[in-house]
């Protein structure tokens, strides 16, 4: 499964991808290769990370056709949504991304992750909310693996907050799957159950 997580610097894009990769590679026993793009600016610039998850060794390290795109900024969505393959999944931060026309054959899921994180007490955990949401929807890694990976990546005093953020994201994702039109703008969601098992090398 080829995954891209993108946004702007400071949103925790890289950390989120790292956590997802760690969940896959260490806690779920899958092969996972993460790469990231660097711009010269440290904050505010475009930021994107790629993760290939497979049950076979990963050869080509980059996304060619994304199975999943998590777009946390307008720029990220505009730039990367064309690379999502038909049947793929596009997950967006709904307060930061306005989409005119979802790409053909792509299922779109939206979440106000930043707002949810603010309600939990700290905006910085929006990436964890988003990660929970994306995991519930794509099934790329197990929930337990993800929680373990989150907890090993954040400092102890922030464990509770992150656990809550993760739970909120996961719950939102589950709700969304049960009821595709529960307040979210969503497109068609073909074969999502199969998405759970689709963690293998892209063709």
């Amino acid at each position: 499964m080829e995954i891209r997580i993108a946004g702007f610097g400071g949103q925790g894009v890289i950390l989120a991808t790292q956590i997802l990769g760690r969940a896959a590679a260490i806690h779920d026993g899958l092969h996972a290769t993460m790469t990231q793009s660097f711009g010269p600016e440290a904050r505010g610039g475009a930021c994107s990370a790629q993760l290939i998850v497979s049950d076979e060794p990963v050869l080509y390290p980059y996304v060619t056709r994304a199975d999943v795109l998590v777009a946390m900024s307008q720029e990220a969505c505009t730039k990367f949504s064309p690379e999502v393959k038909p049947g793929g999944i596009l997950i967006v931060e709904q307060d930061l991304v306005r989409m005119q026309q979802p790409p053909d054959g792509v299922s779109v899921f939206c979440l106000p992750a930043t707002r949810m994180a603010e309600e939990l007490g700290k905006r910085v955990v929006q990436n964890i909310v988003m990660l929970g949401f994306a995991t519930a929807i794509t099934g790329v890694v197990g929930e337990e693996a993800l929680e373990n990976a989150v907890l090993s990546a954040v400092p102890g005093h922030l464990a509770d907050l992150n656990r809550k953020a993760l739970a909120a994201g996961l719950e939102a994702g589950r709700t969304c799957l049960r009821n595709p039109s529960s307040g979210m703008e969503t497109g068609a969601i073909p074969g999502l159950a199969a998405g759970v098992a689709s963690a293998r090398a892209p063709a």
Binding site: A25, H31, T33, T35
Partner: peptide
């Protein structure tokens, strides 16, 4: 650069 910045198990 790829191998240097690529994260894996």
């Amino acid at each position: 650069e790829v191998v240097g910045h690529m994260t894996e198990r």
